[in-house]
Simulated scan of single mutants.
Amino acid sequence: MFQALHHQFVASALVTEDCHRIIPGSQMGCMLTTYPNTCNPDDVELTLKKNLINHFYSDVLVFGEYPEK
């Protein structure tokens, strides 16, 4: 799974680089989020934990490197 994610990150970086080359001043971004299935506190807590994992992905895409921890 992590190998596939790495390839996705590399592909995203290459596309972003191409976009900036083709359209100077352009901006690209990503959207990663999860919503709870219900308003049950257990569902909300699980969703918060899943979104913390999503922050790993967005950190790599935004900062261009893997977090140290």
Rank of each mutant, 00 (worst) to 15 (best):
residue 28 M to S: 13
residue 54 N to H: 13
residue 35 Y to H: 07
residue 18 D to R: 13
residue 45 E to W: 00
residue 41 P to C: 13
residue 33 T to R: 07
residue 7 H to P: 00
residue 69 K to S: 14
residue 7 H to Q: 15
residue 67 P to R: 04
residue 31 M to Q: 13
residue 5 L to F: 11
residue 41 P to L: 13
residue 44 V to L: 03
residue 14 L to Y: 06
residue 38 T to Q: 10
residue 64 G to N: 03
residue 42 D to K: 12
residue 10 V to N: 02
residue 5 L to C: 10
residue 56 F to D: 06
residue 46 L to D: 03
residue 47 T to P: 01
residue 24 P to R: 14
residue 40 N to L: 08
residue 2 F to K: 10
residue 10 V to Y: 03
residue 51 N to G: 00
residue 5 L to S: 12
residue 33 T to Y: 07
residue 14 L to P: 07
residue 19 C to I: 12
residue 65 E to L: 05
residue 16 T to F: 03
residue 34 T to E: 10
residue 31 M to C: 07
residue 27 Q to S: 13
residue 10 V to F: 10
residue 22 I to T: 15
residue 32 L to V: 14
residue 60 V to D: 02
residue 61 L to M: 11
residue 39 C to P: 04
residue 43 D to T: 06
residue 11 A to D: 15
residue 50 K to F: 05
residue 3 Q to C: 03
residue 35 Y to T: 09
residue 45 E to D: 13
residue 63 F to D: 07
residue 16 T to E: 11
residue 23 I to N: 03
residue 8 Q to A: 10
residue 7 H to C: 08
residue 5 L to G: 05
residue 48 L to T: 11
residue 41 P to Y: 11
residue 43 D to H: 10
residue 34 T to P: 03
residue 39 C to F: 12
residue 8 Q to Y: 02
residue 13 A to E: 12
residue 35 Y to V: 08
residue 3 Q to L: 04
residue 42 D to M: 03
residue 54 N to Q: 07
residue 67 P to D: 02
residue 18 D to K: 08
residue 51 N to I: 00
residue 47 T to H: 00
residue 49 K to W: 02
residue 37 N to H: 13
residue 28 M to I: 08
residue 15 V to L: 15
residue 15 V to T: 11
residue 15 V to P: 01
residue 12 S to L: 09
residue 14 L to A: 09
residue 49 K to V: 05
residue 3 Q to P: 00
residue 25 G to A: 09
residue 46 L to K: 13
residue 17 E to A: 11
residue 37 N to V: 03
residue 8 Q to F: 10
residue 8 Q to E: 07
residue 34 T to D: 09
residue 6 H to R: 14
residue 4 A to R: 12
residue 46 L to P: 02
residue 10 V to A: 11
residue 20 H to L: 10
residue 15 V to I: 15
residue 68 E to L: 08
residue 27 Q to T: 12
residue 68 E to Q: 01
residue 46 L to M: 10
residue 24 P to D: 03
residue 25 G to E: 09
residue 60 V to H: 06
residue 25 G to H: 08
residue 11 A to Y: 08
residue 21 R to P: 02
residue 63 F to M: 10
residue 62 V to T: 07
residue 60 V to M: 05
residue 3 Q to R: 09
residue 51 N to K: 04
residue 1 M to P: 04
residue 41 P to A: 14
residue 31 M to T: 10
residue 38 T to E: 12
residue 18 D to F: 03
residue 44 V to K: 02
residue 44 V to S: 00
residue 54 N to C: 04
residue 16 T to M: 04
residue 12 S to Q: 06
residue 15 V to E: 06
residue 56 F to Q: 08
residue 18 D to A: 11
residue 62 V to W: 02
residue 69 K to Q: 14
residue 47 T to F: 00
residue 24 P to T: 11
residue 56 F to Y: 15
residue 5 L to I: 01
residue 41 P to M: 11
residue 56 F to E: 05
residue 61 L to P: 03
residue 66 Y to P: 00
residue 2 F to W: 12
residue 9 F to W: 14
residue 55 H to T: 09
residue 43 D to F: 03
residue 49 K to Y: 05
residue 46 L to G: 07
residue 57 Y to S: 01
residue 14 L to V: 02
residue 7 H to N: 15
residue 44 V to W: 01
residue 5 L to P: 01
